[in-house]
Write a protein that binds this DNA or RNA. Structure first.
Length: 426
RNA sequence: GUGGCCAUCGUUCAAUGGUUAGGACCGCGGUUUGUGGAGCCGCAGAUGAGGGUUCAAUUCCCUCUGGCCACCCCA
């Protein structure tokens, strides 16, 4: 052991997990690209102030989970590793004048994010999100499009039983009024609330709906529902989203207690959940509308919606259900030989096979042929080419156990490729 | 960030306040010398780190590191 370990919450992803990750990410890209979303790659770090402004300076994500980079000189701007992607996307939208493109601007990315949280299963300090953003359209239609896209993605990877929990968190017009009503409701039991919940009653009553504490949970059941205190505009938006989703075939679970952690959400808010799962692993992702964010970041008033789905959690869910895709299979053809001088030729032949679309590798050792065959067999290779001392090649069919007489290179290579193609498909 | 449980070869298990910490799987090699996943034989490989108690610590205590669970929060 070297004495070094990966830092807390940061991990190595190896096979077979690595294949499952790649597979989940590929599905994410293609689901969004097929729907007309444009790829965008963003930097992993941004001006710290961008996150502070977007997410809210008092939020947990900013106050305790943000990785702030050491400042290297007086004039450099303080940077932070991204804890989420929406802020960066909005920054890019403004920086590149995307408001002069057809609206809404639809963007996708798969991003590594960093949050200094206490790690647990399904919760890491570096994690990957599939993120979709549609900026510049205030209509309910785009909400429906985005929500449906997320469900379609999750279903496409095999998570057919996911639930969409939906709520509306209002807007600056109606939220203050609702908070008052809500606070009044909980004030009745204020003295029985846990200390944490009492603080929430003061600072962010919405969070009380989300509490795990017995008293709060019990009292939350009879709490006034936000959907009944929405302003006319928000109420109509909510109605249209629900109706549209139903017609689009997305079944929705009404979730009056759903509140999202980031301050910038308005109106539509939702989460993708796995029924039966408790706690952390249950929430695969979530999203919402953020009509005030662009303006908050210094742009013109511009609406937006988006979601983020945790790839790490998708992979975990896949594994728990045995839906993990088959890992990459080893090369179909192995090129063996024992003379040290034939190594170059073995590599050239393997390369030639690959160029013709057949996976192949050379055995670059000088071990006995028996050992080389054994390792090829264990790797589930289909065929072996043996470079004979005189430079001629023998082709051995591992399934059949037969070996042809040594022949000329071109012939043997094409026969091997042929064999790999016909048997590889089975 | 708070509280709790945990930590032995790459993996999975075992053992002990006292000689060389044991097995299985995996890997590598041998099986009479260039042809197959078996069998047999062999090799390599661990007490996470640092302190303390003790004649003696992998074992008991402390700190750190890392994992897991709950909370917090979120993906």
């Amino acid at each position: 052991m070297s004495g070094f370990q990966s830092p807390r919450g940061l991990r190595d992803i190896r096979e077979p997990d690595a294949s499952a990750f790649a597979w989940a990410e590929e599905h994410a890209w293609s689901a969004a690209l097929a729907a007309g979303y444009a790829r965008i790659q963003l930097p992993v770090a941004e001006d710290s102030a961008l996150f502070e402004r977007a997410i809210g300076g008092t939020s947990d994500v900013v106050t305790k989970e943000l990785y702030r980079l050491a400042v290297r000189s007086e004039e450099s701007t303080p940077l932070a590793l991204r804890p989420e992607v929406t802020a960066g996307v909005v920054r890019a939208y403004l920086q590149h004048g995307m408001r002069s493109e057809p609206q809404p601007v639809r963007l996708v990315t798969v991003a590594e994010l960093f949050r200094h949280d206490r790690p647990q299963k399904g919760r890491y300090r570096q994690f990957t999100q599939f993120d979709i953003e549609a900026i510049g359209d205030a209509g309910s239609g785009i909400d429906i499009e985005v929500i449906e896209l997320g469900t379609a993605y999750l279903r496409s990877v095999g998570l057919r039983d996911i639930e969409v929990h939906l709520n509306s968190v209002g807007c600056p017009t109606c939220r203050p009024g609702y908070l008052v009503v809500l606070a009044k409701h909980f004030a009745a039991v204020a003295d029985r609330l846990s200390p944490v919940d009492q603080a929430r009653l003061e600072e962010n009553p919405l969070r009380l709906l989300d509490s795990k504490d017995e008293v709060a949970v019990a009292h939350a059941k009879g709490a006034p529902r936000f959907v009944e205190h929405l302003c006319a505009d928000c109420a109509e938006h909510d109605r249209a989203v629900r109706e549209g989703l139903s017609i689009a075939g997305v079944t929705v679970v009404d979730a009056p207690h759903l509140v999202r952690g980031l301050d910038y959400y308005t109106k539509t808010a939702w989460e993708y959940l796995l029924p039966g799962e408790q706690g952390q692993q249950g929430a695969l992702g979530g999203g919402g509308r953020y009509d005030g964010l662009v303006e908050l970041l210094g742009g013109p008033a511009t609406p937006g919606v988006g979601f983020a789905i945790g790839i790490d959690r998708v992979v975990l869910a896949l594994q728990e259900r045995g839906l993990t895709p088959a890992p990459q299979r080893p090369p179909a053809v192995v090129v063996c030989g024992i003379e040290p001088g034939s190594v170059g030729m073995r590599i050239a032949i393997a390369s030639e096979l690959r160029a013709s679309g057949v996976s192949a590798r050379a055995d670059v050792s000088t071990r006995k042929i028996g050992k080389q065959l054994e390792s090829a067999v264990r790797d589930t290779a289909i065929a072996v080419i043996i470079v004979e001392p005189d430079g001629s090649l023998s082709l051995r069919d591992l399934a059949a156990g037969s070996q042809a007489e040594p022949g000329a290179r071109a012939m043997v290579v094409s026969a091997a490729a042929q064999l790999a193609r016909t048997q590889g498909g089975q």
